[in-house]
Amino acid sequence: MEKVLKKSDLGQWVARLKDFDLYGPVRENNHWEFNQISQLANFPEDYTQVNVPLKKILLPNREVLFQFEDNRNGGPYLQEVLPEEREVVVFGVRPCDARGIVLLEKVFSSEIPDIYFERRRQQVYVVGLSCYPLPGENCFCLSLGGGPFSTKGMDILLTKMQSKYFVEVLTPKGEKLIKAAPEYFFNPTDKDQQERQQLERKARAMFTRQIEGVEKIWPVLSQMFESPLWREESYRCLKCGICTYLCPTCHCFDITDEISSTAPLQGKRVRVWDTCQFPDFTMHSSGHNPRPDKASRLRQRIMHKFLYFVETFGDIMCTGCGRCVSKCPVGIDIIDILNKVASHGA
């Protein structure tokens, strides 16, 4: 279903969504972040891309799985803790981040569904914002089957036009949001349609960064386990977690018990973010570490995204948001590395 919404009506519509917790881009120091908001009059002109992607809501960096208590009389006592029930609408989600959800679903909602992720996923309504102009200098979604107007993973996609938003309603969840204030939504005219198409064409022509021949990458990668490339590219790596913590698709976690009282023993089992880039991620209790150096960890990051995930789920685990490139403190550039990989196969 396609609609248009007057720019001045955005705030009115959002005000009607009283039953939902609303999230939108909020400026913090030098960057944008999805924070809870009470209103949304417009998307600021300088809004580019949030720092921590949508996984901050779907896969929070601390998820309580259950509580435990060692009751001397009754033995150990466990109580399941599920994410609180609340419906959340997130505004201004860029297509790359929305596609990230689709990839996370492959991991957490496939054969053995993860109840925590599933519940959060069901409760989240994604209102996207298409990218014109491109939000980042390292955007490369086009090379990975995405695009600045991609609708994957979204319930609604908004496109900012001259005086209106072009509204693409994509799912029943999206329809539910529109129904909260149907009087603000009109059928698009041919002119609106044309304006939207034109913006998409312009946006697609703006990309400066791309991977040449992404389909070549995974067969080449499978031959590159011992390549000296990893050592060269990772020399300056700091072993920090920025590239993975800010990635919309990276989802590795650690499970740990947090004790709040020792007598009686009480605490919570929590799931927290973890990353293959930390040296202790693969540390065995014997003291042996199968990924002992930066080269093997960088290789893991690239291989997981562009080879192992393709083999398991048939899709590349990267949406081309460019965060790991822009945010890396030492300029490690996944686009550059992938182009080098592709050229190995040529």
């Binding site: 913090e28 700091l238 920090c240 977690g241 403190p329």
Partner: peptide, 12 residues
């Protein structure tokens, strides 16, 4: 409260 504990500060 924003700290993600990516430990970039420590690593660098």
């Amino acid at each position: 409260s924003r700290c993600l504990r990516c430990y970039a500060c420590r690593s660098v």
